[in-house]
Amino acid sequence: MYRIILVSESESFVKTLGIKLSEIGYSWLSFDEMKSDEHIQGSFIVILDIQSFQMTFHELGEFLKEYPYPVLVLSVIPTFEEGYPLLRMGVKGYANRHIGSVNLQSALSVLESGGSWFDPGFMNDLIRHIDYRGVPSESGEELFEILSEREREIARYIAQGLSNHQIADVLEITERTVKAHLLSCYKKLGLNDRVSLALWVKEAGYV
């Protein structure tokens, strides 16, 4: 399992999030602890509290180059204006600073597997801001038809901004099953993560 590096200037936030991480089975250390140990090794995910750890986008870009780990950015109010530049810089996750334990576990699990996880509200904003053709191409129709009925159903929910947990509740299946269907969708459509799947479905007009 990945270890978590918490990057925040707020001691109370680190304490609160640290408790959540421990509850869902993750070990963690602060950014200062990581920097002070030159011999630290392993697989890491960085959780960056963007409000307290003041950085310009340029400084964040340099940070991502220096620490090439999957990064989950937490914000008080996730917005398109803040989140879209982060997405373009390669940030793999973007969520509310007060993210609950269930969604936090889901986000970290997705990042561990090499995918991306974004706040559902941000996903909806992202989809609305993209200029789509609205009419699927013939090849798009053919591609969508290679998905099973359940895979198409899940793909539409992803495009609507639902999390794996929410989809599992709606369809009355397990999150593990949702994840398996998503991996199958990515493979069949030649995509990499839920963001590209959501945009593909929306562009093809299947929402």
Rank of each mutant, 00 (worst) to 15 (best):
L182G: 03
E151D: 07
Q105L: 09
L199E: 10
F63G: 00
S106C: 00
I130S: 01
A95P: 01
L74P: 09
L74W: 09
L162H: 05
S137H: 08
D125S: 15
L162A: 02
R133H: 13
A180Q: 15
G61A: 02
E81N: 06
E145F: 10
T177G: 05
R128N: 13
L197A: 03
Q166S: 14
V110Q: 06
S116Q: 14
N96W: 14
D125T: 02
K65A: 01
Y94A: 02
L60F: 14
S113Q: 11
K188Y: 05
H129E: 13
R150A: 05
L189F: 09
G90H: 10
S163A: 03
E172S: 11
P120F: 05
A168D: 05
G115N: 03
R133K: 09
R194Q: 15
P78S: 10
L162W: 12
A107D: 13
M89G: 02
S163Y: 10
K188D: 03
P70S: 00
L143N: 13
E112C: 02
V195S: 02
L182A: 00
E141N: 06
R128A: 10
Y94G: 01
E141H: 07
L199W: 03
Y132L: 03
K187S: 14
S116V: 15
L147P: 06
V178S: 00
Y94T: 10
T56I: 03
Q166F: 08
M89R: 08
H165D: 13
L171Y: 03
D169W: 05
S75Y: 04
G134K: 11
A159T: 00
N103R: 15
S184D: 13
V102I: 14
E112L: 01
N103V: 04
A198C: 00
S137L: 08
G114D: 12
L87Y: 15
I77D: 13
V91N: 00
L143P: 01
E145R: 14
R133A: 07
L74I: 12
V71C: 11
E62T: 06
H129T: 01
V76P: 12
S113F: 08
G93R: 01
K92D: 00
R128K: 15
E151P: 03
F57G: 01
Y186S: 04
F122D: 09
E59C: 04
W117H: 15
V73F: 05
G161S: 07
G121C: 06
N103E: 15
H181D: 11
L197C: 02
L87F: 14
Y69N: 06
L86Q: 12
M123E: 03
E59Y: 02
K188R: 06
I173T: 05
L183H: 11
I158Q: 01
L87T: 12
L162N: 03
S184T: 08
I173L: 08
Y132S: 08
F144C: 06
P68V: 09
V73N: 07
G93I: 11
Y186I: 06
I154Y: 05
F118M: 10
I127W: 04
T174W: 11
Y94H: 12
H129M: 14
L72R: 02
R97N: 09
G134D: 11
I99Q: 12
